[in-house]
């Protein structure tokens, strides 16, 4: 088995009526999203506190939620964490910085620690699988470096390798680019596109609207837990929707290469 194969047959993702909150405070109140097809990258944008991370965490099962998240015929919300682990992987925004553990072992641990082991389906060793994943994210030369010796960008790539090595059908990424330099931002977004290319569904929280415009297939704009706009980037990211959620005046204009850009006026 070579890396880049997903385990479950590709299916679409239908998220409906999600209710989720902390204590009595409801962050998401009956949120329903348009159906998402396999192979697509969906960016979630919106101001802080809009519920973007909460939505990802609810789908991942990290926060308690009601509603339904259907992957094909399976309602992921009804599955245990162990059951969900067959379908999805969540990558948190923060990774511990002080762990003295070789990158390759960190990736291996994602495979070995999981009660659901994709090795069931493969003949390759965990080691080979992990090294191939590091090659795919382009940091195989760091395989034997300890995590605490890496730069922030390198650490994020290692974290991405850990999340994908288990070959999830759904990849949930919480602000994967927010602390990275430009080179690593681009590297991460290119990888995200490539992971989607395997037939995965990728949901990614982004703050940079141009990044969302440039790299996603679809964008949803959230405000206070409600859907404000959804669709292909040009449809969702309009001066109107941006004004509504951020209160900031922008223009959306094509650059000399014809790619739409969000330009801030205020």
């Amino acid at each position: 088995m070579s890396s880049g194969t997903i385990i479950q047959a590709p299916a679409s993702l239908r998220i409906a009526d999600i209710v989720c909150g902390y204590g009595k405070r409801r962050i998401l109140d009956k949120l329903t999203l348009p159906e998402l097809q396999p192979g697509r990258v969906l960016s979630l944008v919106g101001p802080n506190g809009a519920g973007k991370s909460t939505l990802l965490r609810a789908i991942a099962g990290l926060n308690k939620a009601t509603g339904s998240v259907h992957y094909g015929a399976v309602d992921l919300l009804k599955l245990s964490m162990k059951g969900k682990a067959r379908y999805l992987s969540f990558m948190p925004q923060m990774v511990p910085q002080d762990v003295s553990l070789p990158v390759i072992d960190a990736v291996i641990s994602a495979l070995k620690a999981s009660p659901f082991d994709p090795l069931d389906q493969a003949n390759a060793s965990v080691y080979t699988l992990s090294l191939n994943m590091l090659k795919r994210v382009g940091i195989e030369e760091l395989a034997l470096q300890n995590l605490d010796q890496l730069s922030g960008g390198q650490r994020q790539l290692a974290s991405l390798a850990r999340s994908v090595v288990r070959e999830p059908s759904i990849l949930l990424l919480d602000e994967p680019t927010s602390a990275l330099d430009l080179r690593h931002q681009v590297a991460v977004m290119k990888l995200i596109r490539s992971f989607a290319g395997d037939g995965r569904i990728v949901m990614v929280v982004l703050h940079d609207l141009n990044m969302a415009m440039r790299w996603s297939d679809e964008v949803i704009v959230l405000k206070e837990g409600k859907l404000v706009a959804a669709g292909i980037p040009e449809q969702a990211l309009t001066p109107e929707s941006v004004w509504e959620v951020y209160g900031i005046r922008v223009r959306v204009e094509a650059c000399s290469k014809g790619i739409p850009q969000v330009l801030v006026d205020a």
Binding site: G61, M81, K82, K84, A85, F90, P96, S114, F116
Partner: peptide, 20 residues
């Protein structure tokens, strides 16, 4: 030990890998 190593790398990711 593997589960502990995974936990050391973050509780959220560990849980999403299916670790209880």
């Amino acid at each position: 030990s593997w589960q502990m190593t995974a936990l050391r790398l973050g509780e959220d990711s560990a849980r999403s890998y299916g670790i209880n």
